[in-house]
Amino acid sequence: MTTFVIRRLMQAVMVLFATSLIVFVAVYAIGDPLEILLPSDASEAERAQVARSLGLDLPLPVQYGRFLWAALHGDFGNSFVYNRPAMEVIFERLPATLELTITALLMSLLIGLPMGLWAGNRPGTMVDESVMTGSILGFSLPHFWQGMMLIMIFAVWLGWLPSTGRGEPGTIFGITTSFASWDGIRHLILPAINLSLGNMAVIIRLTRTGVQETLPLDFVKFARARGLSERRILLVHVMKIILIPIVTVIGIEFGTLVAFAVVTETIFAWPGVGKLIIDSINALDRPVVVAYILVMVTLFIAINLAVDVAYSLLDPRIRSRAA
């Protein structure tokens, strides 16, 4: 197991290096931030002074070398727009995105797993058909349309929930979070539902398929012959088998939710990193864009490593192969 983890960490370092090179060249070769940061009537002397202060007057390889050396020390440079360290700007917005994505993932699991188990245990019935139809809708409907419908129904027509913003967060153990206040929770519900629907559909279909493939197996027949209840067979024995693919999907989907919450955050004006990256791209704020992408890549790598470790805990055969 230790050898396996070390090998994966070495691969992660190589992926991060390659990503930093590709992203840096792609981002720094597009556009001129001076056109946005300076007024149109700025003199050449002013442009040269700003370019020198931002390091934009150096050759691209030199800029990358300086960027890579600073990144190894956790420094991605100052944001052109906020004039603060890029990582500070990202980490300031990251808690809001993590709140949203964690809530969306929990919603997906708490609703998707029971619905998938229910449908899988009753194949061909009206329950199965209804659940599968709902999951197809979850796959098919665009996030931006879902978000607008949620706002129209629950915020405009019914007036039950707020439509935009993060609300007034509270504090738990010195940590500021929306979970600590009712106003924060109310603002969190609609964007979390919108973000969770597609992932919920994936979990429903995956769970249903796993249940239908597992129930005819011999060990289930033996469990029934021993007199075990259907609930115990389903929730203990069958669930242990189908958890392996579900863990993989949960890990991948969590990273996807964090990285691609842009649409939901934009629709609901949620102050997370998704909205930040859109604003930074529009402003050609290169340090923030590069730092954001590398943070997302690191997050994906960490999640994949955690999924691999969870795999080995769920399936001893994987542990023996890794050794």
Rank of each mutant, 00 (worst) to 15 (best):
I36P: 06
R7H: 05
A96S: 14
R47A: 10
G272I: 06
F144R: 03
N121P: 04
F4W: 06
V249F: 14
L98S: 04
P39N: 03
I36V: 14
L105V: 02
S196C: 09
V249M: 15
A192E: 08
V263F: 11
G251K: 02
L141V: 15
E44I: 13
S229C: 08
P33G: 05
V290T: 07
G251I: 03
I153H: 10
M87D: 04
T298P: 00
H187G: 05
M152H: 11
D75L: 10
E99F: 00
V262K: 15
A223L: 13
A26K: 05
I281Q: 11
D315N: 14
L9G: 07
L190Y: 06
L197P: 04
I203K: 03
F17D: 05
S43D: 05
I244G: 00
Q11E: 12
M296V: 14
M296S: 12
V27S: 04
T171K: 11
P33M: 07
N121D: 07
G31C: 04
A29T: 10
R226W: 11
V307D: 05
V62C: 04
F144G: 04
L150G: 08
V131S: 05
Q49Y: 04
G134S: 06
F154K: 06
A225Y: 12
L38C: 06
T264S: 14
A26S: 12
V297R: 03
V62T: 11
T3L: 15
P39L: 01
L217Y: 07
V25L: 11
E35T: 07
Q146G: 09
R208L: 07
M126V: 06
F260R: 10
G74Q: 10
I151K: 09
M126N: 03
H143L: 11
L284N: 08
M87G: 08
L68N: 03
D57R: 14
I6N: 04
I241T: 15
D308E: 01
E99C: 00
V309S: 01
L215V: 10
V62L: 13
P191Y: 12
V202R: 01
V211E: 03
D75I: 13
D128Y: 01
A269M: 15
D75V: 12
A71T: 06
F222N: 09
L38G: 09
F300E: 02
F219A: 07
I204A: 11
P33S: 06
M239P: 09
V23D: 01
I30N: 00
P114H: 12
A48D: 13
R93N: 08
I246H: 08
R317M: 08
L16A: 09
V236Q: 12
F17M: 10
P191S: 09
I318L: 15
M152G: 04
A42D: 07
V156M: 11
E92G: 12
V309E: 00
D57K: 13
